[in-house]
Design a protein around this nucleic acid. Structure first.
Lengths: 228, 228
DNA sequence: GTCTATAGTTGGATAGAC
DNA sequence: GTCTATCCAACTATAGAC
C-alpha cells in the first residue's frame, strides 16, 4: 500500500521474515509467507531481494546482530569471581530462554547454512560472532574481578559457547529450565576454577582476590554444585 | 524389480533415506529422492510407509540406534581416571567426527522435530537416548577406575551431552578437529575433578568387571545455535 | 507387489499492466 | 514502485493398469 524507499522496505521484510521464521520455523518462511506477514504482495519481495537466499542471509544477519546486543548489561561491581560469572551466565541464559523461537531459528539457520552453498557464510558469521562475544565477556570478567585465566581466552570462549549451545539444545527439547540453569551454574564454578589473581595491575579496590587460590590443574575442592 | 517382503523393503528404504539425508540434507530427503536412491518407483515408498512423516520417524529411529551402537569398545583396563575419561571421550569423538553427514543430520532431525508435530517424539527420543548412554558410560568409568562421582550421575550426563553437542556444532561449522579434541580433553580434566575414590569396594587394580558389550553407548546429536 | 500416470498443492521467480 | 497474473518446477499422495 504505502510507497516506501527500498531500504525501509527491506527492513520491514527482514522483520517479517524473522517473525514468521521464529514462530513457524525456517521452512515456513517462504517468500509468500513473508510477503503476507509484511502485508505486501509477492512481487515486492523479489523487487527488494534478488532471490530467497538473499532474504535469508539478511534475516540471519539481523538475528545474529540482535543476539550480540542484549548481553552484558551492568555487571556486579564488587563481587567474587563466581558471582560475576554467575551473573554473566545468568543474564545470557535469560536472553536465550526468553526467546525460544529465535533460539531455535538460530540452530535451523546454522544447519541450513551447512547444507546450502547459498548460505555458507551464515554459520561462520554466527560462530565468529559468538566466540568474539564470549571472549569479550571473559575479558570483562577479568577486569571486573581482577583475575586472569589460566588457559587461553579463546579456548575458554569456545568452551563457554559449546556449553551454552549444548544446554540450549537440551532445553529446547525438554523445556527443563531448572536443569539448564543449574547446569550452567555448575559450569560457572568450573570457570571460576580457571581464574587466577591478576598479576600486575592492582585488582579492583574493593574486590580482594582471595579467590581461586593457587591451584594445580585439578583442584578437587571447588566442585561446581550441579544444582542448587 | 525384485519382489521383497514389506519388512525388508522398509529396511532398504530406511537405509536409502539415511544415505540421501546424510549426504544432501534433510530437505533433500524427499519421497522421490529416497525412491530413486533405493532404485524403486515412487509408489513403492507410499506402499511401505503411510506418509513421509512415518518414513522420517523410521529414519530417525535408525540413526539414533546406530549412534548408540558404535561406542564403548575396550576401555583401558588399568589406568587413572583421567586416562579412562580421555579414552571414552576420544572414542566418542572418533565416532562423531568420522560421520559428519550423520551428525549434521541428527541436528537437522532435532530442529525439524521441534517444529513439526508429526515428529514431536523424535527429539525427545534422541536426547533420552543420549542421556541414558552418557549415564551408562559414566557408570562404566566408575567401575573401571574405582571411583564415584561427587555429583548426581544424571547431572553429569547432561553436562557431557551438552558439551559434546556444543563442540560438535562448532566443529561442523569450522571443521577444526584439533580444537574440538583439545577442548574435550580439557573438559575431561574437569570431569576427573569430580571423581572420588569409591568408598566401599576396593578399586581393583586391573579390570575387575565385565565390559558392557551390550551397553548402549553415547550421545547423539542435536542442533546448533548461536548465543550472545 | 510393482509400475505408470496423474491429481492436487505449494513455492520461486518473472512479465506486464497500472 | 507496486500489483495482478502467470509460468514452471518440485513435491506428496493416490488411482488404476499390469
Amino acid at each position: 500500500m504505502n510507497r516506501l524507499p527500498v531500504a525501509e522496505r527491506r527492513e520491514q521484510l527482514i522483520e517479517a521474515a524473522l517473525a514468521v521464521a521464529s514462530r513457524d520455523g525456517i521452512d515456513a518462511a517462504t517468500v509468500r509467507a513473508v510477503a503476507a506477514e509484511a502485508g505486501v504482495s509477492l512481487g515486492v519481495v523479489h523487487y527488494c531481494f534478488q532471490d530467497k537466499a538473499e532474504l535469508m542471509r539478511a534475516m540471519a544477519h539481523a538475528i545474529t546482530g540482535q543476539n550480540a546486543s542484549g548481553s552484558l548489561a551492568g555487571l556486579p561491581a564488587d563481587a567474587r569471581v563466581e558471582q560475576i560469572i554467575d551473573a554473566v551466565l545468568g543474564g545470557l541464559w535469560d536472553g536465550i530462554s526468553s526467546h525460544r523461537g529465535s533460539q531455535l531459528l538460530s540452530y535451523e539457520l546454522t544447519t541450513s547454512s551447512l547444507r546450502h552453498a547459498d548460505l555458507a557464510q551464515v554459520a561462520k558469521e554466527q560462530y565468529e560472532g559468538s566466540w568474539t562475544a564470549a571472549e569479550q565477556a571473559l575479558g570483562m570478567i577479568e577486569q571486573a574481578a581482577g583475575v586472569t585465566w589460566s588457559v587461553p581466552r579463546s579456548d575458554l570462549a569456545r568452551v563457554v559457547v559449546a556449553l551454552v549451545d549444548g544446554y540450549s539444545l537440551a532445553w529446547l527439547v525438554d523445556g527443563d529450565d531448572g536443569a539448564a540453569r543449574s547446569g550452567l551454574r555448575s559450569v560457572g564454578g568450573y570457570l571460576a576454577t580457571l581464574a587466577r589473581p591478576a598479576p600486575t595491575a592492582a585488582p579492583a579496590p574493593d574486590a580482594p582476590h582471595d579467590q581461586g587460590a593457587d591451584q594445580a590443574p585439578h583442584p578437587a575442592g571447588t566442585t561446581p554444585a550441579p544444582d542448587a
